[in-house]
Design a protein around this nucleic acid. Structure first.
Length: 684
RNA sequence: GGGGCUGUGGCUCAGUAGGAUAGAGCAAGCGCCUCCUAAGCGCUAGGUCGCCGGUUCAAAUCCGGCCAGUCCCGCCA
């Protein structure tokens, strides 16, 4: 299904060409949502910028354009307003038909992209031997959300956790581990590194105080890089411990990410230098290997270097990033590579991308994009700290959100005299608490700093997750009562979405058998034909040619390999069904016909139909707050509808129509929230 | 000194590729539960879009300059 905006756009484009011919450039965007509801639903402002090139009055241009546009069943008679705006109002019947098409569709009519890409999302990226703290919150939440949306749009997403598991700090840690807990290195599980942060702090203290320790640390780095057995074991120990701790957080937040740390690229670093040298951009300066940057200068106005190898032979993180970029383009075959890191690294990325481009690692057919985000600040506007002035552990932060939600819930239940099971209360508190943290982060424009406030994110009114979850719960309440009337049976939540498609399998099997029969036949025929001179050679040539064609089409180039993978994956989906947890929606219980008579119904219906446009936009611009805004407005519009339009008490056929509208709203909320990484509740 | 990001009602923020009277939410004031969860809805008040200039029929949006905040600027990541 194509979105309404896209359909209007299509019709206006055709009308435009009919009116003014192909040589007049069409102003973009041609169709935009109306700036004010009183102007209708959509508007076309194309007449205004054309006044000059066409030497005509904008209103006349608009008239001419309208005379050539076929709007037929979609819109009411278009209005010409002001200096030359064209206002469009959609017909209720058309809206109803469009909505009806979404009923029971697990993707709610949102088409998959026509140009699927392999997208690499680099996010979260905590450091080994340090605990995850607020600093990792935004990358983790935003990265996961973008990955979910891109996956839903039909892209092949690789979620990479570029953990800091390599670098100079390990020298310090290993040296300290050897010094303080030597038994940990010789005996398995001799030491439970329960508190890695404490270990890190102690090591840092030793490092700052003791020069001999500093020296030993530097040597330990070299030993580790050289593959020294003992150092490697210490390193492994630290990594395993950290990994376990990270996983606790990821499980809690329902986040999937594949670890591929900095150490992974270690063997590839010398190749990066070779590549830079071959490209002729590598220079030595004060013993370090550098690439001098274009457009970056230091205080004296000299070109700034990007150091790729230190004077002591060690590599920098820029080198690792270049190696990673190379790997992601040439091995992973990524088309779009997204880095979700704080805004402070903007310089670093433009520098790395520039060097990669000049070295030929990065080519024009690959899109690299830094998705920056601002700091998490406390309510005092400063960097978020605990009362004692330490960085806030992510675990504590999440626990606190859940704890506060629970407290509030208990009070509310007591006030209403309700009794609920412990399991219910826990689930509600956990879902609301964690969703509030996620939503608060995602609903803000990520480029600016954001002020972390439990009171605001857990507030029940305003643009918060509790508000959205409540709107969903209200609908579930209606559905339960409706089902109680034995009219419609609500399906149990989320049946498993994958299953073997016997029919598709049978077709495949049949085709295989047919292929074998044909092969057998052709061999027999071939046998007979052998008597004809030259024919065998010709056939061989044909076979050889096909082999060549196949290799060049499907094996030689990344795009071909992707097509091949796509074909295989397509077949697999056909037979075994998509494991599409995101879009796992229960089918609508009824396929009621919709009647949109009142204003709140129309407003809600129009909003429901904008989902696809919003998702397409987030896919491009990578701003999750747009989706949040959409869902918030949807909840508001539903609440207005709920207030003004009785559902269960309405007479048929209005009742069924409104129930269907409720169902579509619930499905949209559920899908939208799932793309933010938030689960819904049926009852609060 | 150079560069990045930010600056919109008391507070937190939207504002999509310039378009009609700049939108929400919180906080404030007033009102609405015999009716599907009031964790809701309605109404009121509050803005020289940091400042100055330019481009344009039209600028919060584009360009230039300035001011403020913040981050980065040779061997940390």
């Amino acid at each position: 299904m194509t979105s309404i905006q896209a359909q209007l756009n299509h019709r206006f484009t055709q009308g435009f060409q009919a009116a003014f011919g192909p040589e007049v450039a069409i102003p973009q965007p041609l169709i935009v949502p109306a700036s004010n509801p009183k102007f209708g639903d959509y508007q076309c402002n194309a007449a205004l910028p054309l006044a000059k090139p066409l030497q005509q009055k904008p209103r006349d241009i608009a008239q001419t354009l309208l005379a050539h546009v076929q709007l037929g069943e979609m819109c009411e008679e278009p209005e010409l307003a002001g200096p030359g705006f064209i206002n469009l109002r959609l017909k209720p019947d058309y809206l109803a038909a469009q909505l009806a098409a979404k009923q029971g569709d697990r993707r709610l009519g949102v088409a998959e992209t026509k140009e699927p890409q392999r997208v690499i999302v680099d996010f979260s990226s905590p450091n080994i031997a340090k605990e995850m703290h607020v600093g990792h919150l935004r990358s983790t939440i935003i990265g996961d959300c973008l990955a979910r949306i891109l996956e839903f749009r039909g892209h092949e997403v690789v979620r990479l956790n570029h953990v800091g598991d390599w670098g100079t700090q390990f020298g310090m840690l290993i040296t300290y581990l050897k010094e303080a807990y030597p038994e940990a290195l010789t005996t398995a599980d001799a030491l439970d590194l329960g508190d890695l942060v404490a270990l890190y702090k102690q090591a840092k203290q030793r490092f700052d105080q003791d020069e001999a320790f500093q020296q030993a640390s530097r040597e330990a780095v070299v030993a580790l890089q050289a593959g020294d057995e003992e150092s490697r074991k210490a390193w492994q120990l630290l990594c395993d411990q950290s990994r376990r701790e990270f996983q606790v957080i990821y499980d809690l937040l329902d986040i999937e990410v594949t670890e591929r740390g900095e150490s992974f690229y270690n063997p590839l670093l010398p190749d990066v230098l070779k590549t830079l040298e071959t490209a002729g951009i590598l220079q030595e300066d004060q013993g370090a290997q550098c690439v001098f940057l274009e457009g970056f200068s230091n205080k004296e106005g000299q070109p700034l270097p990007l150091i790729v190898q230190k004077s002591d032979g060690g590599f920098n993180y820029a080198t690792t990033d270049l190696a990673a970029l190379h790997y992601r383009i040439h091995q992973d075959e990524g088309d779009r590579i997204i880095y979700v890191t704080d805004a402070g690294q903007a310089n670093h990325f433009t520098q790395v991308f520039q060097v990669a481009r000049r070295a030929g690692i990065l080519t024009d057919n690959v899109e690299v994009v830094h998705v920056p985000f601002g700091l998490v600040q406390g309510e005092d506007g400063k960097k978020l700290k605990t009362r004692s002035g330490e960085t806030v552990r992510l675990r504590d932060l999440l626990d606190e959100a859940v704890r506060r939600t629970r407290e509030d819930l208990d009070q509310r239940l007591a006030a209403e005299g309700r009794t609920e099971t412990e399991a219910f209360k826990q689930e509600v508190a956990q879902t609301i608490g964690l969703s509030a943290v996620k939503y608060a982060d995602l609903s803000q424009n990520r480029t600016s700093n954001y002020i972390f406030s439990y009171d605001k994110m857990l507030s029940l009114q305003g643009n918060t997750s509790p508000y959205l979850l409540y709107a969903y719960v209200r609908i579930q309440g209606i559905q339960r009562k409706a089902a109680g009337g034995a009219l419609a049976v609500m399906p149990e939540d989320l049946p498993p979405v994958s299953g073997i498609r016997w029919r598709a399998l049978a077709v495949t099997a049949l085709l295989t058998v047919v292929a074998f029969v044909f092969m057998d036949a052709s061999i027999r025929i071939h046998h007979e034909l052998h008597t004809i001179p030259l024919l065998a050679e010709v056939m061989r040539l044909v076979g050889f040619g096909y082999g060549l064609w196949f290799a060049s089409r499907y094996l030689l180039f990344p795009s071909g390999r992707r097509d091949l993978r796509g074909m295989v994956a397509g077949w697999w989906d056909e037979c075994f069904g998509p494991v599409d947890a995101l879009a796992a929606l229960p089918p609508s219980p009824s396929m009621a016909s919709l009647h949109l008579d009142t204003e709140p119904e129309l407003v809600l219906a129009k909003h429901l139909l904008q989902l696809e446009d919003v998702l397409a936009e987030v896919e491009q611009e990578l701003f999750p707050n747009r989706l949040c805004q959409y869902l918030f407005e949807l909840s508001q519009k539903f609440n207005q509808f709920f207030e003004q339009c009785p559902v269960l008490k309405a007479a048929e056929p209005v009742r069924s129509s409104r129930l269907a509208l409720c169902q579509l709203t619930a499905d949209t909320l559920k899908l939208g929230l799932s793309l933010l990484g938030i689960r819904v509740l049926d009852r609060i």
